[in-house]
């Protein structure tokens, strides 16, 4: 079964535990500037939206990379940056339509979400289940159920 990160912004409180968990998992430090998931605050609307790589099936970052530094992790389906191969040309950051591959000046390489090898630290740290790691085929199920519940049908009469 392939799993994917599922984000429900309606549940996000903006606490940034996910960003700290991400930086700790990957760099051993609590540092928001090193996080691969970002929470955006739309202040006047009262909305907070966590955002990170969705691991496109046909990943443009991967296609664009001239040195084949972005490869698929067979176990998780994550598109993973191989740091030893990356030359820091940033073409992937241009190719990605969502901006979720980012250049890191310190290392001269790019970074993106790699699903932590199948146990994403951001999902584990999220206190409100705004970020979950679920069966990729059913990412829309909750939303479907919610809308299904709004359809205006009367219970069938039993007799």
């Amino acid at each position: 079964m392939q799993k994917s990160l599922h984000i429900d912004p309606g549940k996000c409180t903006g606490c940034l535990q996910c960003e700290m968990a991400c930086s700790y998992e990957n760099y051993g430090v609590f540092n928001l500037s090193k996080s691969r998931i970002k929470v955006f605050n739309f202040e006047a609307e009262g909305r907070k939206v966590p955002y990170t790589c969705t691991q496109c099936a046909e990943a443009w970052c991967m296609s664009a990379c001239p040195v084949d530094a972005i490869r698929i992790d067979a176990a998780t389906g994550a598109k993973v940056v191989h740091i030893d191969v990356c030359v820091g040309c940033k073409v992937c950051t241009i190719a990605c339509p969502f901006g979720t591959v980012n250049y890191v000046a310190d290392s001269g390489k790019v970074q993106k979400c790699d699903l932590c090898g199948g146990d994403p630290a951001c999902a584990a740290a999220c206190p409100t289940a705004a970020i979950t790691y679920i069966d990729a085929d059913w990412t829309g199920l909750d939303k479907m159920r919610q809308w299904a519940g709004k359809t205006n049908t009367q219970p069938r009469a039993s007799a």
Partner: peptide, 13 residues
């Protein structure tokens, strides 16, 4: 009320 919100690192919100 539009929503609740957390300060940095807060799991209460």
């Amino acid at each position: 009320l539009v929503t609740n919100a957390a300060c940095f690192g807060c799991t209460i919100a």
